[in-house]
Design a protein around this nucleic acid. Structure first.
Lengths: 166, 166
DNA sequence: AATTTACGTCAGCCTTGTTGACTTTCCAAG
DNA sequence: CTTGGAAAGTCAACAAGGCTGACGTAAATT
């Protein structure tokens, strides 16, 4: 980490100007981040809300509705509208919980997995290109800052989602 | 770019898993990023759209409506609704263009500047905390990756907005 | 048996995005 | 000087996706 940054670690010069640049970088980058999936989604009858649901169901197959509510941070009425259309269209399957029959365990159907693939391929392609252009050290810094920017509760969600990985 | 990825980090292992982590980091971090201004805005009658307009008017005083349209990427009808409420509430002033009288040059009134301060103070505080926690090298990487993630046109917007700085 | 939890749903509201159509103003080129 | 077209504003209608509140049902928990 001994970067060419003004003598070792030094102090951070956090001028308002620098911070404002960071803020705008987030704004413009997030637009790019969602642009590709958005283009795919709008050809179907879906939006970003469907994408988010699909992403996290793919990510944690068998997750319950209330888990999803916590992660997405929306009301059940709002999620239900989205989930309903995905189930009706045969992209998501909701199985009654085995141990607790009040719960619904959510899974992507093969059709749902197809769409998930399309969407995440597009999003990963952009992320990959950005990572390549920026280099490994930058990637590390990118993730570090983003993690520090999350609300504590969301950081826990983010990190706990990483537990299951190899 | 002399590709600094030769350093101890070796080649980039861009597994789908790593890319997915980056994607989720963006998702959760953006939530944190907007959380503080959102809380302030909801006490008034404003939303994120008002925040964006205020931000970029503050940023480039005297900018025209069509400049703003390009930067924000929305329709004029959508922007107009937001702009109208800001003008009616006395936060924004629209002066008829001096050289071209069809244009409207937009400025924040003192009242508008007050709100801008409030909002950006909140947002900067979080950004500052994240930067401090992550360190200077991480900040550099953060900005580099975000910039690489933008659409080319947005990157130009982002960079041209930086020209005027000292 | 009573209460709580998980989920679904109906109804209605708001913000913020969209199209399409139309007008006014005004610069600039013919 | 006339006219074409750009810039801006406005009206109307609509959709996505947030929200609240109220209510129902089945299952688990106490």
């Amino acid at each position: 980490m001994a970067e060419g940054n003004t003598g070792g670690e030094s102090l951070l010069f956090l001028t308002d100007e620098q911070l404002r640049k960071g803020i705008e970088a987030m704004f413009f980058a997030y637009r790019g981040f969602t642009a590709d999936p958005d283009r795919i989604l709008e050809t179907m009858d879906y939006g970003r809300a469907h994408h988010r649901a699909i992403h996290f169901i793919h990510r944690s197959p068998g997750t319950t509705v209330s888990n999803l509510l916590t992660i997405l941070g929306v009301t059940k009425q709002s999620l239900n509208r989205v989930l309903r259309s995905l189930i009706d269209d045969g992209l998501v399957e909701a199985r009654v919980g085995k141990s607790d029959k009040r719960e619904r365990n959510l899974y992507l159907t093969p059709k749902g997995q197809d769409l998930e693939r399309q969407l995440s391929d597009a999003q990963r392609a952009r992320m990959r290109a950005a990572y390549r252009a920026a280099g490994p050290a930058a990637v590390q810094g990118f993730r570090t800052v983003l993690e520090a920017m999350m609300d504590p509760e969301m950081r826990r969600q983010y990190q706990s989602l990483r537990e299951g990985e190899k």
